[in-house]
Write a protein that binds this DNA or RNA. Structure first.
Lengths: 195, 195
DNA sequence: GCCGTCTCTTGATTTCAGACAAGAAAAAAC
DNA sequence: GTTTTTTCTTGTCTGAAATCAAGAGACGGC
């Protein structure tokens, strides 16, 4: 479990063995079955979650009952309702498992403790969030600038290896498209590639 | 100039006078006229910019020549092409001044130096980026979940005091709407409020 | 191995907001 | 204070993608 987390952290900063031992007890581990909730809207998001195995999604449900996927998280990704976690107010996102999943979780208190005990973790999260911001900026730009087709093709290209693991209607939901639209885009490209 | 920056930093962490003196020389200050560019697409984004007075926007231009505003930044906000800044590759965003503006700017080298000289700045940026992520998540959710009307009303409510400072067609561009759509939404509400 | 649920496809129809056009009002420049 | 530019409004038409509908295929659970 922790190998995946430490590998991720050490991709950004250096950790001593001593620091690793200080980090471990601040996390709890958990397994999730397919379709199992990690968080439901209206609850408080008590933990920040790091995926060591499997695949999760976060999504919100609008007034009409439609689901809108906000994020996928597989091995090496963090996920949470960040607003709810930081403020300890009610969550607006649901998080559940698309596959059997294993996670490491840290509470708000331990998250604060973590950066006190291991100050370099402030830097780790600073760098992690920096990169997330770049990704979100790009995604936001894509959502207003690109057509349905461009959005799907960009996603398919960027996340090629994860593509088979996620049902198409969930990708549609992530991109803000109807599942039928994705189906039509794919048909078009299958026939093009056959030429 | 620096009062605005230090006030912002001290909203998140504590700074000693000594630390402030170490921070100052890492920044340069600059004034911008209305419509003046701070960054153009295809250039390298060399500095992270903090606005002490005035109003900036970042935007990208699509294949058809349409502008899409990515962010507004007024007093107390940071702005940049973050991807370009971090990687020193070509920028995709333009940044220019909507009003006469005064800024403080820090180069990538000094940004790295800053967190070495004043480690608490890792924490400041970690918290700053944390909050930005929450905002971007909400905005992303709004862009797929809400109708044109909901998007505008939410923006108008949230940024009520800044609303008069930004021309409507720029708000439209920020929200991914046509200016005419905003005009129609406002007409509807003006007549409703008159009842 | 069979049943039920989940996932994907295809066609027909509708709709929301975008594009285009043109003029009015307001602000900035000179 | 007049001209020029910018900003906002209103009307009409169009289009990309959503919605509605229905069936086929794949997968998972028992």
């Amino acid at each position: 479990m922790f190998e995946v987390l430490f590998a991720h952290i050490e991709g950004k900063i250096h950790l001593t063995d001593q620091e690793k031992e200080r980090i471990k007890p601040l996390f709890i581990s958990r397994k999730l079955r397919r379709r199992q909730y990690l968080l439901q809207a209206e609850e408080i998001c008590t933990h920040l979650t790091f995926v060591t195995k499997g695949l999760l999604r976060s999504y919100n449900v609008d007034d009409k009952g439609n689901e809108h996927i906000n994020q996928f998280a597989w091995e090496g990704w963090w996920i949470s309702d960040f607003y709810s976690f930081l403020t300890q107010e009610k969550a607006i996102f649901n998080i559940d498992a698309i596959e059997e999943t294993e996670v490491l979780m840290i509470s708000l208190q331990n998250y604060e403790e973590l950066t006190v005990q291991v100050p370099a973790m402030d830097r780790y999260f600073r760098i992690l969030y920096q990169n997330s911001l770049v990704t979100k900026d790009r995604r936001l730009m894509s959502s207003t600038t690109h057509t349905a087709e461009e959005k799907y093709l960009q996603f398919a290209k960027r996340y090629a290896q994860i593509l088979q693991r996620i049902p198409q209607h969930l990708i549609a939901s992530y991109l803000g498209l109807a599942p039928e639209t994705i189906s039509r885009i794919r048909r078009k490209w299958v026939s093009k590639e056959a030429i």
